[in-house]
Design a binder for these strands. Structure first.
Length: 719
RNA sequence: GGACCUAUAGCUCAAUGGCAGAGCGCUUCAUUCACAUUGAAGAGGUUAGAGGUUCAAAUCCUCUUAGGUCCACCA
């Protein structure tokens, strides 16, 4: 053995051996307890970031359960990551001077598919380099045909159970991305915008969006506001830039009398609150902004009774981008004497696209929505009753809170890269029908005159089905059955643990519970284990814009996977964020080297067969006793999901008790050929190697190989 | 506005009612012995502050201060 542990020379080789010998392969063994984890599928198209290395906690669990004799399954996969990937691809197109509009739907999809397939291997190789004991034979992709079938079935089932509806509602629309988003994907940012006070008939109103005023359909006041009470129910005529408009004054307790002038203009087509108000008072929804983010005055220009002045104005605004039109309109308001004052320092929060930071435009669109109430109720019951347990416990409250506040889920996305929604519209009746396989005839009228919805599913809609979908679609499984009844599925589902970052509790975990239970009648997992976020050494979140991102592969190159893994576990509180420092890496490197050298010392002295002298039986007994206690504590910590504690325990024992004390005490004896002492040390050491194995698999396997002459892997041994 | 988290050694963090600890850094010493990516010894703490419960509190409760996160949402 080398005096130094050199991970670069052995890691790849060891991983290949594990794979070649099928040591990660999961089977159905009724004599054993199943233990299963589905890997949260990384984006197929992107490299891993440091956060992905946190999946080490899953590997720790899987390897530990294998060591204590369970039958384990860790199933890998890849996510098509809808808008994320399409966005990256569009940037790639941009570099070639092209855009998504240069291709038809099929070509664009095919191009993104090829792009993704080219990059997909990178992510998978990186998972291997981290030493993850994934069952690669079973890997799945969210766009695999059979996964798509499962997703279609769930969609149909939602429709059959009346949990799906199509509605004309305000959605969060990004005019650059060209798609709507669910409300979870809107990022609110604080901004300073001018607040315009404009004359509105007998009133003055304050607004940041003067450009939508043309399609206001009412004015709202607080019913308790004495100033305006008398106007409620009256129809007011307002002189606008395009002539007079008539609108009713309606009561709305949400209006803050202290804001602006206490009067709010109501634009149902472009404001979520106004939209709801509009519903209540039966106001028309009259859009003036298109999905490409431009003003649309065609409703006005089509009129015949308008004066030339107004026509010119409308023509000027028509087809302009919102921001451009706004300044034109403000100018014209000044000209007409309708602008009273401007508050330049008004701060408010604006919804932006989480993807590219553009302002989200609330637009009325027809979309598919899931009625979440019944799903949420079931999910909540599973969590409250403890059928699904959460570690750390404090997230239970958070999850229940999330479930309590879910609103109906918009699952339609107007992008190409995704699973196309299997909904079809009859051309003659305009009615919709849903089929899980491409229909030949219209389910409404029986003719073949129908068209498929152009939209694709929200990525999270397919991700929400991941745990049962990947098990239902394994080779040899018949997914046509309606109850997902097959051997592998029955054995491993519900999966044992869902391990992921707490930051996607809402977007993913809660939805998996809702949809998983709905589709299978069982929770998708029995336990949730949440890890924290990796931060930089100043405690800052890592992000590309801050330039503080760390490439996990660079760490693996320099220190080896074990060191990276250990650094992400050692001294970390469960579910807590952790700063990532070079010091920690050095400490873990030193530890790996220490373990290596303990092995080296024992190995060097194994050949000696001289007879025992100077036996220190009491010390050996003490060592045995201390080890027994250590192991007991270790097992307890591991079973209680206290992985960091367990690792720390072994770290302390191996280095500061075993090496610093026992080995030092027995060193002379061992060198002089005390076989009994050597044997005891070897025995305790090998047990500790196994206990360390889940955390630092490579170095422990490398040492184990030196001692296991028949070529068994440490993975084949039991704790 | 609602909820949650954090505050412990110089720095980064553990410690789940029972002797306040680790890593890195610092001081002194030892040794080239499996490991200098080493070993031994040591300095460094009123556990943010105040009050309470308890035989016993970093830990449980209340309040205060400071920092952070998530959600709701501002026409």
């Amino acid at each position: 053995m080398d005096p130094k542990y050199k991970p670069q020379q052995i890691e790849a080789k060891i991983y290949k051996e594990w794979e070649d010998r099928n040591l990660f392969k999961a089977v159905v063994d009724k004599g054993k307890k199943p233990f299963s984890i589905i890997l949260p599928p990384p984006n197929a198209n992107a490299s891993l970031h440091l956060g992905h290395a946190m999946y080490v906690y899953e590997d720790v669990m899987i390897r530990y359960h294998r060591l204590i004799g369970d039958e384990t399954l860790w199933l890998p996969g890849a996510d098509h990551a809808g808008i994320e990937t399409q966005y990256v691809f569009e940037k790639f197109l941009q570099k070639q001077g092209k855009s998504r509009f240069d291709y038809d739907r099929e070509t664009l999809f095919k191009k993104i598919w090829d792009f993704v397939m080219e990059n997909r291997g990178t992510m998978e190789d990186q998972l291997r380099r981290l030493g993850f004991s994934l069952d690669w034979e079973k890997k799945k992709f969210t766009l695999d045909d059979d996964i798509v079938k499962v997703v279609y079935r769930t969609f149909k089932k939602l429709a059959d159970k009346n949990l799906l509806y199509r509605d004309y509602k305000l959605v969060n629309y990004c005019t650059r991305c060209g798609t709507s988003f669910s409300d979870l994907e809107v990022v609110y940012v604080e901004r300073e915008d001018p607040l315009y006070y404009m004359k509105y008939g007998p009133f003055t109103i304050a607004t940041v969006r003067p450009e939508t005023k043309f399609r206001d359909t009412a004015l709202a006041v607080n019913p308790k506001d004495k100033r305006y009470k008398k106007y409620i129910g009256e129809v007011i005529e307002v002189q606008g830039l395009l002539g007079p408009i008539r609108m009713t004054v309606i009561p709305d307790p949400e209006v803050d009398p202290k804001f602006g002038t206490g009067i709010m203009k109501v634009t149902p087509a472009h404001d979520p609150h106004d939209f709801e108000l509009g519903k209540k008072f039966d106001l028309p929804v009259t859009p003036i902004i298109t999905t490409s983010g431009k003003m649309d005055f065609s409703w006005f220009l089509n009129r015949k009774d308008i004066s030339e002045k107004y026509r010119q104005r409308a023509n000027k605004y028509h087809n302009q981008k919102v921001a451009v039109a706004r300044s034109m309109i403000v100018e014209d308001l000044k000209t007409d004497g309708l602008l009273i004052k401007v508050d330049q320092n008004y701060t408010h929060r604006v919804g932006t696209c989480y993807r590219d930071g553009r302002v989200i435009e609330p637009l009325p669109l027809e979309q598919w929505f899931i009625k979440v109430k019944p799903l949420v109720d079931k999910a909540k019951k599973l969590v409250v009753d403890g059928e699904i347990k959460i570690y750390p416990k404090r997230f239970k409250k958070r999850l229940i809170d999330i479930l309590d506040n879910f609103i109906d889920w918009n699952i339609s996305r107007q992008i190409v890269w995704g699973i196309r929604i299997p909904a079809y519209r009859c051309r003659s009746t305009k009615k919709w029908f849903i089929e899980t396989t491409a229909p030949k005839y219209c389910a409404i009228c029986g003719k073949d005159d129908f068209i498929q919805d152009e939209d694709t599913f929200d990525t999270w809609f397919s991700s929400a089905q991941w745990p049962f979908a990947v098990l239902a679609t394994q080779k040899g499984n018949n997914i046509k059955t309606t109850d997902y009844n097959n051997e592998l599925f029955n054995y491993y589902y519900p999966t044992t643990v869902m391990e992921t970052g707490y930051d996607i509790l809402r977007a993913w975990v809660s939805r998996m519970i809702m949809i998983g239970y709905f589709a299978t009648g069982k929770p998708p997992f029995k336990n949730i284990f949440l890890h924290g976020l990796v931060r930089d050494r100043f405690g800052q979140k890592m992000s590309k814009s801050k330039g503080n991102v760390i490439n996990p592969m660079a760490i693996v190159d320099r220190y080896g996977a074990d060191v990276l893994r250990a650094a992400l576990v050692f001294g970390v509180k469960e579910g807590g964020d952790l700063p990532f420092t070079e010091d920690k890496l050095i400490g873990m490197r030193n530890f790996c080297n220490k373990v290596w050298n303990i092995g080296r010392f024992i190995d060097m002295n194994r050949g000696q067969k001289t007879k025992a002298k100077g036996q220190k039986l009491e010390i050996l007994k003490k060592l045995g006793k201390e080890f027994k206690e250590e192991k007991k504590k270790y097992l307890k910590s591991m079973d209680g999901y206290k992985f960091s504690q367990a690792f720390g325990l072994v770290y302390e024992f191996v280095w500061h008790r075993f090496a610093d004390y026992y080995l030092e005490q027995l060193k002379d004896d061992v060198i002089n050929g005390n076989i009994k002492a050597l044997e005891t040390l070897e025995e305790v050491f090998l047990e500790n190697l196994k206990m360390l194995h889940p955390f630092v698999p490579f170095v422990t396997e490398a040492i184990y190989k030196v001692f296991e002459k028949d070529g068994r892997s440490i993975l084949q041994d039991r704790l």
